[in-house]
C-alpha cells in the first residue's frame, strides 16, 4: 500500500492533496465555530438607526415594524422624521445606494418639533393621550392635558384625533443652551467671491 503511494506520483499527489483538504477543512470548520461573530441581527441594527418617533409615517405601526420590513426588502426611504441622514445611515448598513427621502408629499420636517396643547382650549377628551405612542401626554378625562416636551418625539399622531384642534406642532426654539456652531458656508468648493466687503477705512 505504502509502496503504491510512494511510487505512483498521481496517487501521492491525490493523497497529499486529500490530506491537506482534510486539514484545512477541519481548520476552517473549527474557526467558524470558535470565532463565530455574534452580530446584532439586522433588525436590531436597523431599529437602532431609526429615530423612534413611532409616528407611522412609513406606513407601519412603529419603528421596529418598519425595521423588520426593511430587513425583508422594503424601501429604506420612508422615514421623514429621520431625514436624509437616516436614509444614508441605513443605506450604509445595507450596502445600497441611498435614495432620496420619500416624504410622501409633505414638506420634510428638518427642524424637530414638539406638540404643544393650547391648554385653555383643551376639553379633556383623552383622545390625544391614547394616540401618543410615547406616553408623553399627561391628563385625565375632563381635565386639561399637557405634553411632556422632553419625551415628545414630534410624531404628529396626537394632532389628528384632537376634536377641538388645540394641538400645535411647534419647533423647538434655539436657545443659548442648545445652540451649536454652524458649519462654515463652503465657499472654497462651490462659488467663492474674491470681493472684499466694502468698508470705509479710517
Amino acid at each position: 500500500m505504502l509502496e503504491l503511494i510512494t511510487e505512483n506520483a498521481v496517487v501521492t499527489a491525490l493523497v497529499a492533496l486529500g490530506f491537506l483538504a482534510l486539514v484545512f477543512g477541519a481548520l476552517l470548520g473549527f474557526a467558524s465555530v470558535r470565532f463565530k461573530v455574534e452580530g446584532d441581527p439586522i433588525v436590531d441594527q436597523l431599529d437602532a438607526l431609526l429615530p423612534q418617533t413611532q409616528c407611522g409615517q412609513c406606513g407601519y405601526p412603529g419603528c421596529r415594524p418598519y425595521a423588520e420590513q426593511i430587513a425583508q426588502g422594503d424601501e429604506i426611504n420612508k422615514c421623514p422624521p429621520g431625514g436624509q441622514a437616516t436614509v444614508e445611515a441605513i443605506a450604509q448598513l445595507m450596502g445600497v445606494d441611498a435614495p432620496e427621502l420619500d416624504t410622501g408629499g409633505a414638506e420634510s420636517a428638518e427642524v424637530t418639533r414638539v406638540a404643544y396643547i393650547r391648554e385653555d382650549e383643551c376639553i379633556g377628551c383623552t383622545k390625544c393621550i391614547q394616540a401618543c405612542p410615547m406616553d408623553a401626554i399627561l391628563g385625565a378625562a375632563k381635565q386639561m392635558h399637557t405634553v411632556i416636551s422632553d419625551e415628545c418625539t414630534g410624531c404628529d399622531l396626537c394632532v389628528e384625533p384632537c376634536p377641538v384642534d388645540c394641538i400645535d406642532m411647534i419647533p423647538i426654539p434655539t436657545t443659548v443652551q442648545n445652540w451649536t456652531w454652524e458649519k462654515p458656508a463652503s465657499n472654497s468648493n462651490i462659488i467663492a467671491t474674491d470681493k472684499q466687503p466694502a468698508h470705509q477705512a479710517a
Binding site: 431599529d47 429615530p51 423612534q52 413611532q54 412603529g62 410615547m134 418625539t153 451649536t180 456652531w181 458649519k183
Partner: peptide, 20 residues
C-alpha cells in the same frame, strides 16, 4: 456640536424606544 446633538438624539431615541 453635531456629534453632541447626535448623541443626545441617540439617547432620546433609545429612551423613546423603551417608552414605546
Amino acid at each position: 456640536g453635531a456629534i453632541r446633538t447626535e448623541r443626545e438624539e441617540k439617547a432620546k431615541s433609545d429612551r423613546s424606544r423603551r417608552r414605546f
